[in-house]
Design a protein around this nucleic acid. Structure first.
Lengths: 108, 108
DNA sequence: ATTAAATATGAACATGTATTCATGTGTTAA
DNA sequence: TTAACACATGAATACATGTTCATATTTAAT
């Protein structure tokens, strides 16, 4: 115990880069919608497109970016590819942020 | 208890918008740097600029965006304006995300 | 082999945005 | 009132990026 328990050190430059990149990808409404749409269970590209009212091409483009950042994982089943959040960290991040935003509204 | 305790409902459209906007603002390396720089204690605009090697104008422009989203708060003291994270939610968000990213690196 | 279905990719475009430069506004001291 | 300091703002620009359209690739069925 140093008496400064709440001291917060800035992330390493490397983590900073990844952090900013992650935030940037989550900062697009379309991509954010895709992520929440895949949260409950894996969804095929077509399902995402239809469910969110987006073109198949657009969804595929966004999924490529999300894949590149390891935010989602895609698995083939026959002709379709089902996408899911990459791991628990991703879903936890979304959940945490969502709850922070929700609480923030109270004390406006 | 429903047996589906981990069920996650998507945020409301309104929260979705705020969430995406928040992510978008955090998605810029310069802004992210400014936020972490102000985390420990309030910092003046000049200190931020000098500390991060940025122009005063650029810092001011970014602070305006961060203010608009209520991510930071500015307080005047004499000639200077000291900026701090708006509230605990903001610092918690940054801390949470940073730790998620840090842990994510382990199981690469 | 053809055909159809599902997804991925490349080019093109329009829009958004981070940065710089110049200038304005507010505050303190003389 | 000036002058100097600290910060804010507007215009301009270079660059990034979200979206569409057309087309390629992969898989399954006949």
């Amino acid at each position: 115990m140093t008496g400064r328990e709440r001291e917060l050190q800035a992330p390493s430059p490397q983590d900073m880069t990844i952090l900013a990149e992650t935030f940037r990808l989550l900062g697009d409404p379309t991509r954010l919608g895709i992520l929440f749409f895949c949260m409950a269970r894996p969804q095929s590209v077509g399902d995402i497109a239809e469910g969110l009212g987006l073109s198949q091409s657009l969804v595929s483009h966004h999924l490529r970016l999300l894949r590149g950042a390891r935010l989602v994982r895609g698995e083939r089943r026959a002709k379709q590819v089902f996408y899911a959040l990459a791991d628990r960290h991703v879903s936890d991040m979304l959940r945490d942020m969502a709850s922070h935003i929700a609480e923030e509204q109270d004390d406006a």
